[in-house]
Design a protein around this nucleic acid. Structure first.
Lengths: 199, 199
DNA sequence: CTAATTTTCGACTATTAATTCGATAAATAT
DNA sequence: ATATTTATCGAATTAATAGTCGAAAATTAG
């Protein structure tokens, strides 16, 4: 009756294995195109076993998303905690995200694109996503206020950055980690640091 | 046996009516979520009649997309034809797209987002989409070469612009047409015209 | 070792929705 | 006015697939 620690851990492993197979299939066929049969194959279990671990297909998807966002958020927390300048923090946040993206390739592109396809009502991962977005927007605003960024509309910056960053991290065929130099360069193409390039 | 002109036109009308109902439903429920029954209702025909005019659900979707991209492209051709400076042409192209987007609200957001959801193999509309993208990229490159844009990576610019522009045109609650002032302003937030703001 | 429990799974069921059928009506032609 | 062509549609068919069932194998407990 007393579930042993090992038992619990193995259970967790199996869940992760299913999630990983599911991600593959979701990415290949799209969310609606993915079938439980194929997910079962991809993860090496029988279909019925999926339902032993997860309530439904939707539940599987939600688990992938929640887990993904949670891990991003956790890796970001310390960076956000450090009391550096908005610009410095901002750059570190981007680097951290890039790091995440490169550790688990595929997952993050999925994470950032899936909201367009899913009914987002009471999705538990939505909270973490929103937190991340509001932190970034906050940093932009603070940076503008403190004069570290030139006076552009933070909302516009945010959107432009989205396109740029996704391009850099996801589409890129690069293997090497994204360095702060990369991010600085990218950033300088959009907004020159007024404290440096006073010219 | 000789289909009268009017007959052909009425037929065309009916097809458009179906397409318009279908777009509504696609937008509301997503592509996979949309049912032919609902499309039939929305467009005021019986379900079987849809199949009299279109081969399949996919065919309906393709027709929407092809028609949309074709119309964008046609409206853009003259603007591209005029031999103005890259920067001027670039701005005019953006304005034209914005115009299109406002004339048929809903369609264009759909047009620009749907590729993420659809298997894009031999899609006839893909060609027009690619043409548009390559024109824009070309203008950016020419602008950089001629010194009208500062020397940023055109690929990055392109992506950043995507985010920005979509924000301005689609998300915005604005009713008024997008003017060249708007586009200039937007543009200047990203890239200052070196021929003006030499400071 | 035997009983309980956890895990696994292929076959079955139920549902949903795309597509087709067959009949009928409306319009057009002769 | 009759025949032919064009248009319409609800009902039936079919296909796909999410989710369930009941049995059995593996593991753990006493």
């Amino acid at each position: 009756m007393p579930q042993s620690q090992r038992q619990l851990e193995e259970r967790q492993m199996r869940k992760e294995r299913i999630l990983s197979g599911a991600l593959q299939v979701f990415k290949k066929n799209g969310i609606d195109g993915a079938t439980m049969d194929e997910i079962a194959n991809a993860s090496g279990f029988g279909k019925a076993t999926l339902y032993y671990y997860f309530k439904s297909k939707e539940d599987v998807l939600t688990a992938i998303l929640l887990d993904g966002w949670l891990k991003i958020w956790e890796s970001l927390e310390p960076v956000i905690g450090e009391q550096k300048s908005p610009r410095k923090t901002f750059i570190n946040v981007l680097i951290k995200i890039a790091e995440n993206a490169q550790n688990r390739p595929g997952l993050f592109e999925f994470l950032f694109n899936v909201p367009k396809v899913v009914k987002i009502e009471n999705q538990p991962w939505k909270e973490y996503q929103e937190r991340l977005y509001s932190v970034i927007k906050g940093l932009l605003e603070d940076g503008v206020k403190s004069g570290e960024f030139p006076n552009v509309n933070p909302n516009h910056m945010f959107k432009a950055l989205g396109g740029l960053f996704m391009g850099l991290v996801f589409m890129g065929d690069r293997e090497e980690p994204v360095t702060d130099k990369d991010v600085e360069k990218l950033l300088n193409q959009l907004i020159t640091d007024p404290t440096i390039s006073k010219k």
